[in-house]
Amino acid sequence: MGVRLDADHRVKGGRSVTSTMPREGRPAPDRPSPGMAGRGSARISAALWRRTWLRATLTLSPPLAWFLVIYLASLLVMLVTAFWSVNPFTNALEHTWTLANFRELFTGTYLSIIGRTIAMAAIVTVTDAVLAFPVAYYMARIATQRGRQLLFTAVLLPLWASYIARVYAWIVILQKDGTLSWFFDKIGVGPVNIGYSNVAMWLVFSYIWLPFMIAPIYAALERIPDSLLEASGDLGARNWRTVRSVLLPLALPGFAAGSIFTFSLTLGDFITPLLVGGANSNFIGNVIYANIGTANNLPFAAALAIVPIVIMICYLLGARAAGAFRSM
C-alpha cells in the first residue's frame, strides 16, 4: 500500500507529507514511533488529505440528505398534488390526474391576482433599487469606517424586530387618523387616507425588504477598486458618466442579487396584504392560504403555489441572460 500511496503523492505535484505525518507502510527510523491512537487519526487525516472527493462527500452528505428529503421531496409532493383534485361533494382528495386546477388559474379572478402580485413585486423591486443605491454608495465609498459600521447596523437593525410588529407600526402611521394623516393635516394639505390600500402595501413592502437590497449592492460597490473610478475620470468622464458607464454596470450583480430577494419575498408574501391591504389586495399567497384552510382545496393551492416558482425561474433566467451573474 505504501508504494501505491507514494505514487499518489507524486501525481499531486510531488509534495511530501512526511513533515507532518508518518508515511504508512514504511518504518521511520529517525522518528519516535507515535502511539496507536495518534497514528490512527493521522492515518485518517492523511487519507482524507489525499482524496479531495472523499472530503467533499463527507462534508456535503448531511446537508445534501436534508436538502433531498425535506426540501425537494416536499416540493415534489406539491407538484404531484397539483394534478389531483377534490371531490366537490365529499371534499375528499381524488388521486386521478387532471389539468383542471391549472385551467382554473387562467380564469379572470386568478389571473388578476397573479398580475397584481407580479406587478407589486416589480414595483417594490424598482423602488428598493432606487432607494438602496445612494445609501449603499454612501456606505461603500464615502462613509468613514465608523460611519459605515453605524449605517450597516442601522440598516440591519429592523430585521431584529418582528415582521408583524413592523407592519403594525406602519398601520399606525398610515391608517385613518394615523401619524401621516395628522402630519399632512397640520401642514395644511388636509387629511390623507392611504391605509388599507395597494399604496399602503407598496410602502410597507418597500420598507420591509429594503435591507435585502442595500446589503448586496453595498457588497458589489465595495468590491470596485478606486482606481477604476479614477481611471474613468482620468479619461475625461464627468461624475455622472462614471456612475453610468463604470459604477452601475459593475454594481449590476449586486442589483440582481438584491432584486431576487425583494422580488421573490414580495411574490410569496401573504401577511402584509392581509394586514395593510384593502378590499382588492389579495396576493397569490392569500389565495393559497385560503385554499389550504377554509376552502380545503389542497390540489388547487398546490397548482397556485407553482406559479411563483415558475415566475422566479423565468426571472432568474432573464437575469442570467442580462449578464447579472457573469461577474458573481
Binding site: S227, E230, A231, L250, S327
Partner: peptide, 12 residues
C-alpha cells in the same frame, strides 16, 4: 492620462 499600477482596466 494615467497608466495605473493595477492597470485599472474596466472589466465589463
Amino acid at each position: 492620462n494615467t497608466v495605473f499600477q493595477d492597470y485599472a482596466l474596466f472589466p465589463h
